[in-house]
Design a protein around this nucleic acid. Structure first.
Lengths: 241, 241
DNA sequence: TTGTTTGACTTGTAGGTACAAGTTGCTTGG
DNA sequence: CCAAGCAACTTGTACCTACAAGTCAAACAA
């Protein structure tokens, strides 16, 4: 299978990329250098952009993309919560960043996936706590938590958006302490809306984390879905034998 | 900021997508339906393809993409290894799949990232075990393990590609049993080569898992980097309080 | 000195053409 | 009846034009 022209141009450009942050030649110069049409050069460039290697913005020459990730320690997460406020904020501060948090508390009808995880009928009225987390005024993640009715019913605490209302502590305070968690991780490309809300550059996947927390009786008491810009975060776990 | 025509067309097409596996209208029909040029329609379609929503192949109409993921249980991984052969193969079998394994054992010079994790000088001669794992004759992941010299020196066992040579058990058998692990997870877009080796559809990110294993003395004894096609796998962890 | 305007550069959007190449089903000849 | 081949479809590649819109620096005016 012979290499197409746009593939060849993409390969040549990729191999000539400088260090992160440096500028690429303009389209016109690449057209001249490789003897391809502007459309072909643009096809090559947008392939590189889709691979997350370069960035582009109108009026400026393209740049070699630079990425720096913040670590998010998943194994410490819930445990630290119980003692010490927001563990996510603490882990970011420890790495020299400035964390920020937008919390929205909603009453919703359970969508199919949430209902299945919480083992309740789809459409049940449940409470959702939707967070948008920022680091250095850069949006990092959309973290949505869902609670089954038997946990939230009659607990005004859950409507309190204050910082004491962190979720590990919150559940413990209302008699439904989590003792076991099941986490899953996948990745996919963001929708246009997710891409916009998280201000994600093209060619950036979404890292999707879910956590299902169980109480001592083995009942699911919280389902959390976190969607992260994969170029800004690295999730970590510590395990013992 | 007004919506461009290609954005509008992309949105309308996305909202009219049928169920997974169903066919899209041809480009010509979309050109007529939305009154845009073929270039504009193709721009919209390739945006949807980059989002992983549709697939395309020359000569056939595009299709709505369908994805099914296999679960990979990370917390059980090393522990099961010690008793029971290849835990990854077992977890796939338990889900009704047919696993397969290509193993290549190499002697290489440690690249910078590997050297840093194993705390050895870059360029040190080390052993690498590179696996390509398949499920139902579909490539799933590239899993590369690296061992520092003090672990492999004088151990012929490490050159044995047999099934007894699974790594958790292998390290234990040579007196360097792992007792602690540090895992990280990120996602990024694949390079052209990774995309080809894993036969990944456009719009599919790579889920990248790393595991650094320590022995009882706290020395790193294995560094493993696994690159997975994110549309075919879901990584999971079980945690206790 | 400071602020504004202008012009030259950049990328983005939208349209067009032509032909190559893969897929599928119908027609037709044996 | 079956198979080969052809025709009509599909998407892929590559080229072209025109203009819109954002960026940046030099020139110019207050």
């Amino acid at each position: 299978m012979p290499e197409t022209l746009q593939e060849r141009v993409a390969r040549l450009i990729r191999d000539s990329l400088g260090e992160p942050g440096s500028a690429l030649p303009s389209e016109a110069e690449l057209v001249e250098r490789y003897g391809a049409s502007r459309n072909t050069v643009r096809a090559a460039l947008s392939a590189l952009e889709a691979q997350g290697l370069i960035t582009s913005s109108q009026g400026r020459t393209r740049q070699v993309r630079e990425i720096n990730r913040w670590e998010w320690k998943m194994a410490e997460w819930e445990r630290a919560h119980n003692n010490d406020g927001d563990a996510w904020a603490n882990t970011i501060k420890a790495q020299g960043g400035t964390p920020r948090n937008d919390l929205q508390i909603l009453s919703i009808q359970a969508p199919a996936d949430v209902a299945k995880e919480l083992k309740i009928p789809a459409g049940t009225a449940i409470q959702a706590r939707n967070r948008l987390r920022w680091v250095n005024d850069e949006p990092h993640q959309l973290s949505d938590s869902y609670f089954p009715p038997f946990v939230t019913d009659g607990n005004d605490l859950f409507w309190n958006p204050g910082d004491l209302g962190v979720q590990g502590g919150l559940l413990a305070a209302t008699g439904h302490k989590q003792v076991r968690w099941h986490d899953t991780l996948t990745a996919r490309m963001p929708s246009a809306e997710e891409s916009q809300r998280l201000m994600m550059a093209p060619g950036t996947p979404l890292l999707v984390h879910t956590r299902l927390g169980y109480d001592a009786e083995g009942r699911p008491v919280r389902y959390m879905v976190t969607r992260m810009a994969a170029d800004r975060v690295e999730v970590s776990y510590d395990l013992d034998a």
